[in-house]
Amino acid sequence: MNQKQNQVIISKEEVKHVADLARLDMDDTSIELFSKQIGNILQYIDTLTSVNTEKAASTSHAVFLPNAFREDEVKNHMDRNLALSNAPEKENGNFIVPKVIG
């Protein structure tokens, strides 16, 4: 690889911060590994900076589609118990979660 390899592209602190944002716990070994691996990937992604995009619009979708409107009609919906059938914890037709308000 080139001389940039030893440069820090994404620090361990940054990996930790981003993992926090994404609600992921990571141990020190994984953080160190990810910092290296993701650093290599981001360095590769940096080739995009050499592309002249001054006149390019941005694309977020592969095919052009206008807004998809439909009539607001009442249709059959899924049975409540069926919809809850995969819930890790449930009671009286509701999802149970740990206490949110202290």
């Binding site: 994404i10 940054e14 981003v18 944002l21 994404a22 993701i38 981001l42 992604i45 995009l48 900076t49 592309v51 995009t53 390019a56 619009a57 941005s58 694309t59 977020s60």
Partner: peptide, 22 residues
């Protein structure tokens, strides 16, 4: 999450979306 995080969005997602157009 990194590419979408505050301060990096334009440099990564914005740029990549323009390259996608090209």
């Amino acid at each position: 999450t990194y590419c979408l995080s505050s301060g990096y969005y334009d440099a990564y997602y914005g740029k990549a979306s323009q390259v996608r157009t090209l």
